[in-house]
Amino acid sequence: MQGPIAIYLDADACPVKDESYRVAARYGLHVYVVANSMLQVPREPWIERVLVGDGLDAADDWIAERAGPDAIVVTADVPLASRCVRAGATVITPAGKPFTDSSIGMALATRDLMQSLREAGTITGGPKPFSARDRSAFLGALDGAVNRMRRRQD
């Protein structure tokens, strides 16, 4: 038996917090805004700010410990996504791309390769800028994930 659906935001650098709040309000979901630093969040009983310690992976650990079949995790952090996918959570990037059992291995390998190339000085640029198209894709992906989970629970 699953519990109520909850959204966990890896929030320190999350560009889609407001969109997550809108979807959560529409469906009556609880949102955990997990961060290492103090962030402003709306004063709503269903939005909970979780301030974790300064440890390197403190926010990731907090989210991963709670991720399961009733969780939607929003993160661009591939190692955190891997931990959450293994726990049965639905994981979506802020650009709306899902991490799944079949895609997480390639995502980890790509991340490791890119990190090696950056360390060697081969690649110096970062990710492309976040766009309106990314924001729209995220809204669709989050809404779809919520609806799939609700159907599964019925």
Score class of each variant (00 low, 15 high):
Gln40Phe: 11
Arg43Lys: 10
Asp60Leu: 07
Glu119Leu: 13
Glu48His: 15
Gly55Ile: 03
Asp154Tyr: 05
Phe130Ile: 10
Phe138Glu: 01
Arg148Gly: 07
Thr93Cys: 08
Ile7Val: 15
Ala81Asn: 02
Arg111Ile: 01
Ser37Pro: 00
Gly121Ser: 07
Ala107Val: 10
Ile7Arg: 12
Asp134Thr: 03
Asp12Lys: 07
Ile7Lys: 09
Leu39Glu: 05
Gln153Leu: 15
Ile104Glu: 03
Ala107Tyr: 02
Glu19Ile: 01
Arg148Asp: 14
Gly3Asp: 08
Leu113Phe: 13
Leu29Arg: 03
Val23Cys: 11
Ala89His: 11
Ala95Thr: 15
Ser103Arg: 14
Glu48Asn: 14
Met149Tyr: 09
Ser116Thr: 14
Ser136Ala: 15
Gly68Asn: 15
Thr122Tyr: 14
Ala81Gly: 13
Arg43Tyr: 00
Val74Lys: 11
Asp70Asn: 14
Arg66Gly: 06
Asp154Ser: 04
Val41Ala: 06
Ala25Glu: 13
Tyr27Val: 06
Leu51Tyr: 01
Asp134Gln: 05
Leu56Met: 13
Lys17Ala: 05
Thr90Gly: 01
Pro42Val: 06
Thr75Asp: 09
Leu142Glu: 09
Arg83Gln: 11
Pro127Trp: 02
Arg86Thr: 06
Ser102Cys: 03
Asp134Gly: 05
Ile47Lys: 04
Val74Arg: 09
Gly55Thr: 08
Ala137Ile: 01
Leu80His: 00
Gln115Cys: 00
Lys17His: 07
Val34Trp: 06
Asp18Lys: 10
Leu56Val: 14
Ser82Ala: 12
Ser116Pro: 00
Ser103Trp: 12
Thr100Asn: 13
Asp134Trp: 06
Val50Tyr: 14
Tyr32Phe: 15
Val50Gly: 08
Ala141Met: 09
Arg135Glu: 02
Ala11Leu: 02
Ala81Gln: 06
Gly3Thr: 12
Asp134His: 13
Pro45Cys: 01
Gly53Trp: 09
Ser116Cys: 05
Pro69Ala: 01
Met149Cys: 07
Ile104Tyr: 08
Pro127Asn: 10
Arg111Asp: 01
Ala25Gln: 11
Ser102Gln: 14
Leu139Val: 15
Arg148Phe: 08
Ile72Gln: 03
Arg148Pro: 12
Gly121Leu: 06
Arg135Asp: 01
Val50Pro: 08
Ala25Val: 00
Arg83Leu: 08
Gly140Arg: 12
Ser20His: 00
Leu113Val: 12
Arg111Tyr: 02
Leu39Met: 11
Val146Asp: 14
Pro94Lys: 09
Ala109Arg: 15
Ile5Glu: 13
Pro79Asp: 02
Cys84Phe: 13
Glu48Met: 08
Ala59Gly: 12
Val16Phe: 03
Ala67Leu: 04
Leu56Asp: 12
Phe130Trp: 06
Ala71Met: 04
Leu9Asp: 05
Asp60His: 04
Ala6Thr: 14
Gly28Lys: 03
Asp61Trp: 09
Cys14Met: 06
Tyr32Met: 11
Asp112Arg: 15
Leu80Gln: 02
Thr93His: 10
Trp46Gly: 08
Phe138Met: 07
Asp12Trp: 08
Arg49Tyr: 05
Ala13Thr: 04
Thr90Lys: 05
Pro94Arg: 08
Ile5Gln: 01
Ala11Cys: 03
Arg150His: 02
Gly140Gln: 11
Cys84Arg: 11
Ile5Trp: 05
Gly88Glu: 06
Ala107Met: 13
Phe130Gln: 12
Ala6His: 11
Ala67Met: 04
Arg66Gln: 13
Gly140Cys: 01
Met149His: 07
Gln153His: 09
Leu142Val: 03
Ala71Lys: 07
